[in-house]
Design a protein around this nucleic acid. Structure first.
Length: 868
RNA sequence: GCCGGGAUGGCGGAACUGGUAGACGCGCCGGAUUCAAAAUCCGGUUCCUUCGGGAGUGUCGGUUCGAUUCCGACUCUCGGUACCA
């Protein structure tokens, strides 16, 4: 053993042994309990950033911990290969997205290996590889056969200069990020999958996901947004309007109807009105993002049309409003300004009547300004007056049903999944069109995406590539054209977890191995995926089950949502209005006296850049911090330890690497302890003590042995709990405390027991730290443990007898304020403890001019004396 | 806007089921070692203080013998918001 800790040497040796022995290869073995641990696979964006390191270290710590518990662990890794950044990079660097992606995967794979993550690399998969995506093409056609796929028109962001569809994140303040052009909404035909048919199951089976955080389940419930209400028909000479409402009890308070700008009624009205046509055009120039739609100013225009109120028969004016969307429900809503805040504001703005039909149950309640949106008692509602909201909902709906003017209806916020993307770098949608434009599913897979293309920034290259487009019809054999849209990349990430079970399979999408490993026992990933990715993956799992590929109902038993790693963003806007982002490492930040950021300048030329705020590390904001420099300087074990120590896994973390030197210092101290005590530790097996006899030893010996063992096992107890609750920062803190204690322990006083007690502490330290910093721990284990005894062979064992204390420290409070500490024999009863507390010098001083009213004794903790 | 989180010393964070607020680490201060520095080691480090003590976990209020922890209202902040992944 050399004197200095050399992480680079230790780590490369350990990694080559793992690679040679295929230590992490997972085989289906029914004699051992299986454990499938999975982290969300990365988009190959270039290099790893600290968000990846955190995510994958958490997963690796859990995997190695489970392995030490004796389970058969599957821990795979792969690449979410398709996506938008590859196209942007290809345009910028004049390469093909495929080449850029391959390059990034090679770089990032090396980084993952250098970090020592224990993956079964034989199962590696890449979603942009035809051997992967051909199965989702096949699967899509199965869904098509089952009637779960359909085509309809949907809006996209259209950049009229670049002649291309933009993603929401590429639209900044209503303009295209590259061209600066005002973005327009455009309707194009797109493929949809009927996720709404599974809405009820996706909602109800959330109740069974005990291993998921409540916050994620709540977000998914709210996203699905099941609401019970009524469809109501408003008859009109221009065409009947059907609207959905969750508040049929307020039906008598309807004072106008509002339709979307694209509603047939609005289109018809625009033909005879310049103003309405202009208004419709204005509505074309808004964003498609919900956040924008909800926060924009609510505007509208009267269509000059009327519909008949189903109950009163009154004329109700029809308006066109920018907040009603054609894609939600029927594209028309009924407005009750007295009882809905948005309707209220709109009515006030355009001087539309407001009719109050619900009063609070409590007469005295202050309804204040604005709409009264609570439930209550009906008024001004004719025959329905006096009913409660709940009664009225039923009775009004019933009235509508019996008059054929409506029905009870369940509505979901969840919309069908639009899977078409007008992009090149994605999985081709396996459909072909005949001469009449009729679509049929392809029969041969993969429908391969040409890799050798040039990106010019104007549309997708395959949209004008005859060799790709022209094909023969799978049924008729006649000339046909391929679909040139590609899948949403959430498609690939919705089933990769299943494919890892049988990544080498080339005759089917999945085989029986999927049922062996699934469901995933532990899934680890960023909280930003709480709804969309996790909902799509749950949906896909149920689809795969219903197609007969799987037995289980849910993909992920336990979910750990890792908090975001965030960092400051810096950007500059050029003359064309384009945004350019700069990496934090290339920027110098000046702080004001309070320590908040004042000014940021670019290191290269000293020019000022704007401080954009703290955001999650991402390619698009260029604020990802590359761990490579830290790995080179301190080694993987230090980077892993530091990342785990920085914060608990589920908490978000603003990146700051000031403290990494401390993590490195700690591992050097661990190494130094073994080096210093080499001969002692080599003279005995590195194991926990199963039986200890203190009789016949002197007091100071007994005491120092008891102290060290009390501390060791206090830490064992904490660590057992912390691994179970996945709070790894306190595991690291506990390892530091144990190391501190080992350095300070009175080994000399322990006489012949020094060796087994030290061996026990050393054993505990290496085992508890092994999942976090495995290279060093395995190295030290190799050096000091008995031959054929593996570090991973067993887990920590708590010795309750080591925790028994004969003296307990009590805290004495007076009126809740700490006044003294008291060492009490463990055998003392409450009355004795109370007397001792009152007798304590500082306590009696405080009590001298007070009357004791009450004394609370909390066993083994404290005494609180209430006095005045 | 809506949905879900978060806020504790100079900084990252700890505190089990309502029971000593600040574990562990960073930084800083002092000391040892060194020709000197780095590294390392030892000690101190919430704030105020008349050195008795007092205040203190985003803000305001409540429950309790006792609240970082439970309840109500709010502020700021992060994530998502259906074409970033």
């Amino acid at each position: 053993m050399q004197q200095d800790y050399d992480p680079q040497k230790i780590e490369t040796e350990a990694q080559s042994i793992w690679a040679k022995n295929k230590t992490f290869k997972a085989l289906e073995d029914s004699t051992k309990e299986k454990f499938y641990c999975l982290e969300m696979f990365p988009y190959p964006s270039g290099k790893l950033h600290m968000g990846h390191v955190r995510n994958y270290t958490i997963g690796d710590v859990i995997s190695r911990y489970q392995r030490m518990l004796g389970k058969n662990v599957l821990h795979p890794m792969g690449w979410d290969g398709f996506g938008l950044p590859a196209e942007n990079a290809a345009i910028q660097h004049k390469t093909a997205p495929a080449a850029w992606t391959d390059q990034n995967i090679a770089t990032m794979r090396l980084q993952l290996q250098r970090l020592g993550f224990g993956y079964d690399w034989d199962r590696e998969l890449t979603t942009c590889d035809p051997s992967y995506y051909k199965w989702e093409q096949w699967f899509f056609t199965k869904l098509y056969e089952r009637g779960l796929v359909y085509k309809k028109e949907a809006e996209v962001n259209w950049d009229p200069i670049d002649q291309t569809v933009l993603a929401n994140e590429q639209v900044i303040d209503g303009r295209g990020w590259r061209s600066g052009a005002l973005v327009e909404k455009k309707k194009i035909p797109q493929w949809f999958i009927k996720i709404t048919e599974y809405a009820d199951e996706l909602l109800s089976s959330l109740d069974d996901l005990d291993g998921w955080p409540d916050s994620v389940k709540t977000m998914q419930r709210n996203w699905i947004g099941k609401s019970v209400g009524a469809d109501v028909t408003f008859v009109s000479t221009h065409g009947d309007l059907e609207v959905f409402t969750t508040r049929p009890d307020t039906l008598m308070g309807v004072t106008y109807l509002a339709v979307a700008a694209d509603h047939p009624l609005a289109i018809a009205a625009a033909e005879s009105s310049q103003a309405i046509a202009q208004f419709r055009e204005q509505c074309q120039q808004t964003s498609t993002a919900e956040a924008d739609l909800e926060t924009m100013e609510k505007v509208g225009i009267s269509l000059g049309m009327h519909a008949t109120h189903p109950i009163t028969g009154e004329d109700i004016p029809i308006w066109c409003a920018n907040f009603v969307l054609m894609s939600y429900g029927t594209g028309a809503v009924m407005a009750v300004p007295a009882h809905d805040q948005r309707d209220f504001e709109f009515a006030n703005k355009y001087q539309i009547a407001i009719k109050s039909v619900i009063k609070p149950e409590d007469e005295k309640a202050d309804i204040g300004d604005g709409a009264f949106t609570d439930q209550g008692i009906l008024i001004n509602s004719g025959d329905f007056d006096g009913l409660s909201s709940d009664q009225a909902k039923q009775q009004i709906t019933q009235w509508l049903v019996s008059n054929s003017l409506g029905r009870q209806q369940v509505n979901y916020r969840l919309r069908d999944w639009g899977v078409s993307r007008q992009r090149y770098w994605g999985c081709p949608i396996p459909m072909v069109y005949d001469k009449l434009g009729e679509a049929s599913p392809a029969r041969d897979f993969p429908v391969e995406l040409p890799r050798d293309v040039v990106m010019d920034g104007v549309g997708s290259p395959i949209k004008k590539m005859r060799s790709f487009i022209d094909t023969v019809h799978p049924e008729t054999g006649l000339e046909a054209q391929r679909e040139t849209d590609t899948f949403d990349t959430f498609f690939e990430s919705s089933w990769y977890y299943a494919r890892f079970c049988c990544a080498d399979l080339d005759t089917a999408m999945l085989d029986e191995r999927a049922n062996h490993w699934l469901p995933v026992d532990q899934y680890v990933g960023g909280i930003e995926h709480a709804v969309m990715h996790l909902l799509y993956a749950r949906f896909f799992h149920k689809l795969m089950r219903d197609v007969g590929l799987l037995d289980s109902d849910e993909p992920f038993v336990k979910l750990l949502t890792q908090g975001m790693v965030t960092a400051e963003t810096y950007h500059r806007v050029d003359q064309a209005g384009k945004l350019e982002f700069f990496n934090p490492v290339d920027v110098t930040l000046e702080l004001d006296e309070k320590g908040s950021p004042k000014r940021a300048t670019l290191n290269s030329d000293g020019s000022e850049v704007a401080i954009g705020g703290v955001e999650k590390m991402s390619k698009s904001k260029n604020n990802g911090v590359d761990p490579q420099g830290m790995i080179d300087r301190y080694g993987a074990d230090t980077v892993r330890l530091f990342t785990m120590f920085a914060a608990p896994p589920d908490q978000s973390l603003e990146w700051n690497d000031d403290a990494i030197a401390g993590a490195s210092r700690f591992l050097r101290r661990v190494y130094a302890f073994f080096y210093k005590n080499e001969s002692t530790l080599k003279s005995t097996p590195l194991e926990q003590i199963s039986d200890i006899d203190l009789s016949g030893l002197d007091d100071s010996c007994q005491q120092s042995v008891k102290e060290m063992r009390l501390l060791t096992h206090t830490i064992v107890k904490r660590v057992l709990r912390d691994y179970e609750r996945q709070q790894f920062n306190t595991v690291v803190a506990a390892a530091m405390e144990l190391t501190n204690a080992m350095e300070k322990a009175k080994w000399g006083d322990m006489q012949e027991l020094a060796t087994p007690v030290m061996a026990e502490a050393a054993c505990v330290l290496l085992k508890m730290l092994a999942p976090v910093s495995p290279h060093l721990c395995e190295f030290l284990w190799e050096q000091f443990a008995e031959e054929n005894v593996e570090l991973n062979g067993s887990w920590l064992v708590l010795d309750e007898s080591a925790l028994v204390q004969d003296q307990i420290t009590y805290v004495v409070q007076i009126n809740g304020k700490l006044r003294a500490k008291l060492s009490v024999a463990a055998s003392a009863n409450n009355a004795e403890i109370e007397e001792m507390a009152k007798a304590e010098e500082n306590v009696s001083r405080f009590l001298s001019d007070l009357t004791v009213r009450k004394v609370i004794v909390v066993p083994k903790k404290l005494v609180n004396i209430v006095a005045n």
